[in-house]
Structures are given as C-alpha cells and as structure tokens.
Design a protein around this nucleic acid. Structure first.
Lengths: 240, 240
DNA sequence: GTCTATAGGAGGATAGAC
DNA sequence: GTCTATCCTCCTATAGAC
C-alpha cells in the first residue's frame, strides 16, 4: 500500500511543460486532477482492492496508462488521493485551534473539541463535494490494520495540537487519559463522517446522517461530556 | 458481496454423511471450520477484496475447490464468516441486557452501556482468539458504504434492545437522541475493538489498545458521560 | 468430500508509436 | 502527454476423476 521503495529514479509527476510560455486558452481539466477525482470517489466506495485501475481510468475519461505516467502505480495514485486534501485539512484545523486559543477568555473542553471538528464538518457541508468522499475514504482506512501508518503520517501532528489545547482545559489530567478520550472521539467522528447511513436505518428515519448540523451539535455535547466524565472518574478513583 | 440470487437449487453445506453411524475416531478438524478460521483471519487483515480464495485455502491447508463445495463462492464464505459468530454474540448481549434489567434496583445509563459492551470485551479478552479477528473484521465493514446491510442484518435487533433499556434509564429523552448517542458509542467501540494500535503510536506508548480492561473502564465512563451530557443539553435547549 | 486440471477472463503494469 | 497494443500473472469458478 504505502510505497517505501524509491525504486524509479526520475519521478515525472508535475514537471513543468517545456513550452516557452503558457498557451492562451489552457482551461481544460487536466488528466491528473480527473484521475484523482475519479479515484477518490471509487476508493471511497469500494476500497483500494475493490477498485481496478481500468475502472478509475474509465470514470476519469482518460487512458489507463496515464495512471502509471502521472502516479507510477495504483498505490501511488491512492497515496496522492490521500495527500491532496490532507494538507488543507491539517492547515485548517491548526488555524482553527490557534484562533480558538488566541480568542478565548478561558480554554474549555467544548471549545477545543469544537475547534477540532468544525473544520471537517464545514468542509463536508460547504466545501466541494469531494470532501464528503474523502472523509468516507479516511473513515474506511481508519478502521483498517494497514491504515495506521497512513493516518499517522498525515494527521497525528494535528491531533497532538488538539491534545495540547485539551491539556490547558484540564490541567490536572494525565495525558494518557486525553489520548484515550481522543481515540473515542475519533471513532465517533469518523463514523459520523463516513457517509454510511446506518443511523438512518437504525432509527427508522428519526436521525439523518446527512444532517451534519445535527451531528455537529450532538457530537460536541457528547464528546465534551465524555471527556469530562472520564477524567473526573479517573481523578476520583485515584489512579494516575 | 451479499448474495441475493438463490441460483443453485441444492445447497450442499452441512449435509449429513451417508456413513451408517459415526466412525470410532472422528476427531479431525474439518475443512469448513479450517476455512472459516483462515478466512476470518485474512479478511480481517486485508478486507474482502484484498484476499484471494487461493490464499484462504492455502492458509487453511485445504484445496481451493473446497471453498466452492462448502460455501458456493467467495462471497458465501465471507457471509459464513460473519454469521458464525454473530449468533452467539447477539445472544450473549441479549442475555446480558436482560440480566441487568432483571437484577438492577434502578436502571442507569452506565449499567445499560456496561451490559452492552461487556460481552464483546469479555469475548475478546477471554474467548477464543478468533473473536479478536472477528471484531477487527466487523470494525472494517462498519465504516464501509456497502457494510450497512450486513451490520443491519446481524446486529440491529440487538441495538434496539439496548435503546429500550436506555429509554428506561432516561425516560424523558426522545428516542432520536438515544439513536444519535448510540451511533457515537458504536464508532468509539468499533475503533477500540478494531485491533488497530493507533492510540499506542499516537500516545507514544502511554496507552495500549490491547489493554481491554483499560478500554472497558474508560469507554464506559466516556460513553455514559456523553449520553448524559447530550440528553441534558437537548433538554435545556428545549428542542425535542 | 477431496483432489487435479483447466477454463476463461481480468488484473497491474510496460514498451513504444505519435 | 496521450494512446495502442500487449505481457504475463493471478483470479474466480467449474468439470470430473477418485
């Protein structure tokens, strides 16, 4: 999955065209972007092994060989899909956490959790539709044995930033407890953003997974309450 | 994945041998069970599409053709893997919830959540090692678009029983809120039982995903606190 | 019930013309 | 940068002997 071997010496991706300047009307949707979009959609639906390079190429409306020209391999395409949106997402969450800390009179668990989850919910609600597929893909990888390395590479710095803010809100709590609580938060959040509509069927339509404003509100209350209850119980029990 | 077409008229699986009675020493580990064990392990590691029938057969030490004899197809094998442990798990959770309601002076959120999650944690800790792989497999399917139908078929009755008990503990709360909260619980729980060790790496070893007693304690406090905070916030806000 | 053998096709990836 | 043509491995599944 994740390619470790840097076998091919010259990577052709993204090299500048050798044309003197840019042609006047150069407004076509380029092949790499089309491939990334198609791959994002298909991988999110059926997973890495459930999609063939031919299917991706067909959905993108380009030739199969272009996958190997631009991304070296199927795995390279997969990694590129993940990387493309990881950067803006991490940047948005970092900024959100910093803005919160800079502007808050007192740092609270609710505030920290909100600053962490809001960028994702806002991207999913108001960003381009690819974000929904991206989160569905990340949610799948997240519950996978081989996904750990990928998630770590792109997102763990961001989580440490959240933990630091939470530590300010709960100065007496051991970090260990914050990591556990974050792990629970991550599971809830990823299921909520996975695009599966299990809760719709389970509740016979009372809940709608697509109603992300409902998710935002409840996930915030639930996770903040969970954090506080967990660290409180820990303190009372005299562990640590 | 899930086979809808009942194409082959006669299903050969589990038919009685035509031998007059049972032979004296008939203690070999049968092929179907060996195949289910191998498939459980491999599907849990790499998912349905990431595993080939040849790999399953090789791991089981039997011939590939036996997959098709006993389970009709690769999908049939997959379904059989899921079904095998679904029945005892659902029964154990049902019994756990009933025992709790029967024995409790007052029904609490903590008690209901504990009665729901304890069977899984106990199976994973003290049951045969296949349970760990099984939960890893279910965790993967759970975050998948196509997994909804499977999870629903095997587990949703069980969840309704939990919701009913929670409704006793929180008589004033709309069921809608309980379904939302359960969905968050499910995400946390499945990540905790997925066998991924992301929290180990994230916390630099402070937390160990394999320490299920640590998970049990914290998941209980976290989820119970989350439930209460969520329904309290809902009540205060005057929605409903 | 279990094996051998094979059908029949789809998979990832590449060479080389344009 | 893009397409045509192709390599060759590996797949699911079945037929039929034992």
């Amino acid at each position: 999955m994740t390619q470790i071997d840097p076998k091919s010496p010259a990577k052709p991706r993204q090299r500048k065209s050798s044309r003197p300047t840019s042609s006047p009307a150069d407004i076509r949707p380029k092949a790499p972007a089309r491939l990334l979009d198609a791959a994002e959609t298909l991988f999110a639906q059926r997973g890495f092994h459930g999609v063939t390079t031919r299917q991706v190429a067909a959905a993108a409306g380009v030739d199969v060989a272009l996958i190997y020209y631009h991304f070296e391999s199927k795995s390279g395409l997969f990694d590129a899909v993940l990387e493309r949106r990881a950067r803006p997402l991490v940047a948005a969450r970092r900024e959100s956490l910093r803005d919160y800390v800079a502007g808050a009179r007192v740092v609270t668990v609710e505030g920290a959790v909100a600053a962490f989850i809001n960028p994702m919910i806002d991207f999913s609600l108001h960003g381009d539709p690819g974000w929904k597929r991206y989160f569905a893909l990340v949610a799948q990888i997240d519950n996978t044995p081989w996904g750990g390395e990928i998630i770590h590479r792109y997102f763990d710095d961001n989580v440490q930033e959240l933990i630091d803010v939470l530590q300010c809100a709960l100065p007496g709590s051991p970090k260990r407890e914050l990591y556990w609580a974050y792990n629970f938060l991550a599971g809830s959040m990823m299921l909520a953003l996975s695009g599966t509509e299990r809760v719709d069927r389970l509740s016979a339509g009372l809940c709608r997974a697509k109603d992300l404003e409902a998710v935002r509100l409840r996930l915030l209350n639930y996770c903040a309450g969970g954090f506080l209850a967990m660290v409180t119980a820990e303190r009372l029990s005299g562990r640590a």
